[in-house]
Design a protein around this nucleic acid. Sequence first.
DNA 1: CGGTACGTTGAGTCATATCAACCATAGTGG
DNA 2: CCACTATGGTTGATATGACTCAACGTACCG
Lengths: 234, 234
Amino acid sequence: MSHPEIPVPFCNKCAFEINSIFKHLTKDEADELNYLKEFRVFKKGAVLYQEGSRISGFYCINKGIIKVFKTGPDGKEQIIRFAKPGDIIAYRSVLSNEPACTTAKVLEEAYTCFFPSEILSTLVKKNPNFALDLVKLICEELGEANSYIIDIAQKTVRERLAEVLLKLVADFGIDENNQLKISLTREELANIVGTATESVIRLLSEFKSDRLVDLSGRKIIILNLKGLEKLSNF
Amino acid sequence: MSHPEIPVPFCNKCAFEINSIFKHLTKDEADELNYLKEFRVFKKGAVLYQEGSRISGFYCINKGIIKVFKTGPDGKEQIIRFAKPGDIIAYRSVLSNEPACTTAKVLEEAYTCFFPSEILSTLVKKNPNFALDLVKLICEELGEANSYIIDIAQKTVRERLAEVLLKLVADFGIDENNQLKISLTREELANIVGTATESVIRLLSEFKSDRLVDLSGRKIIILNLKGLEKLSNF
DNA sequence: CGGTACGTTGAGTCATATCAACCATAGTGG
DNA sequence: CCACTATGGTTGATATGACTCAACGTACCG
C-alpha cells in the first residue's frame, strides 16, 4: 500500500487547495492528521468499503471519483452520490458507529487518505469551527437527499434524467467541446436516475433527436443547457 | 402568544423527559436556553414556517405532531418526516443560513419552544458533547433519507405503503386494539409513500382483504405485522 | 479469435396515474 | 333545523409510462 512514486498530500496544503472539510484546522491539528493518516491509492473498479461491513475510519479524497451506492432488495444499485477531491466518505457510519450502509467504488483512479474513526469525534470536540463546518456539510447533504426524494417521487424519468445530466454538469463540468467530463455507463446513469438501463438509452436518444445532447459512445455532449433545464422542471 | 393556562416546559426537565437534543447541556446552558426561548402553541392545521421563507430560529417540539413536507412542481406535497416531542425542526435552514426548504404544518395540536438561530451554533461551539449529539442526529436523518431514496426508486407502491405503515407503527405506536395512534388522511399517506391518493385507497383495501389491516374511516388497525414486513421487502 | 461487458432496439405487459362520478361526514349560516 | 358547502373517501374506466424480456450489435482486450 506504499506508493513511493506518488507524493503524499500534506493535509493543510491539500485542505487549502481542494477546499476540504479540514480547511479550518490549526497547524497542530493538521500535523496530527498527517501523522495518523494512511495514504491509499485505488484503481478503477476497486471497492473502498462494502455495505454492511464495519469500517475503522473514513476517507478524504485527494484525486479521482468514487461512486457511493446502496444495493436494493433485487440487487440493483442506487447511486446516492459521487465523491470527488475534497469530499469525505464513510463519515456517517463512523459517527453513528454503525456498519456501512453504502458501498464505495472507484470510477476514476483515486488517491485517498484514510483516517481512523476516533479522529472525527476528537476533532468535533476539540475544534468548534470544525464541528460547525462538519454540521453544515452534513446538512447540505441532507438537503440534497431530501430534494432527491421528492424528485424521484414526483417527477417522470425523463425529467429526472435531464436533471441528473445538469447535476453532472454542475459537479464535474464540461470541456471546451461541451463534453461532460465524467464518464458513466448507461447502467450507472440509470442507477442515479432510478430507472432501467433501457429507459436511459431510449431517453438519451430522444434527447439527441431533440438536439438537447449529442452522443458518441459513452461521451455526452451538452448542446442545449436551457432546454434541459426547462425539461427538468426546475 | 402567551398561554397562562399551559405550563411552559423547563428545558432541562423537558430534555430529560422526552430525550431531546438538549439532554447533555449543563445547568447553565439549559438556564440560558430557558431565558431565550419563546413558548408557542399551534392549533391543528397551523403552519410553523413555510417553504422559501427565511426563519429566525428553530423549534423544539414538546407535544403534538408536525408534518414536514416539500411541495413539488405541480403543487403536490411530499412528506419528508414527522416531528414529535423531543424533535427539533428547521435546524437545517438555520445552520445553513438558507431559506426554509420545507413547510411545517401541525397535525395534532403542538406545544413548541422557539429558539433564536444563534443559539444553535453557539451551543455547537461551546459544548462539544452537544455538537457531537447534533452531528449524530443529522447523520441519522441523512441515513433515513438515503434509505428512502432507494425505497422510492426501487420498490413498488404496494411495498412502500406496507413499509410506511410499519414505520408509523414504530414511530407513533399502536394502542391496545392495535390501532395506529397517528391519524392521517389518505392523501397524507399518499404524500408519504409518494403516490396518488386513489392508489393508497385501493391498496389499503387490498391489505384489508388480505387480513393485514382493518379499516374504519381514518382508523387503521394492524392485524398482521409479520405479513406487512414480508410484503415490504425488509 | 473468442470472450466479456456494454449498448441498442423491439415487442409485450403491467403497475400506477389520471379523470370522472359519486357518497359520507361534518361544520356553517340563514 | 335544514340546506349548503367543503373536505375527504371510494370506485370504475381508461390511458400510459416505464419495466421486462429477448435478441442482437458493437467494441475492446488478452
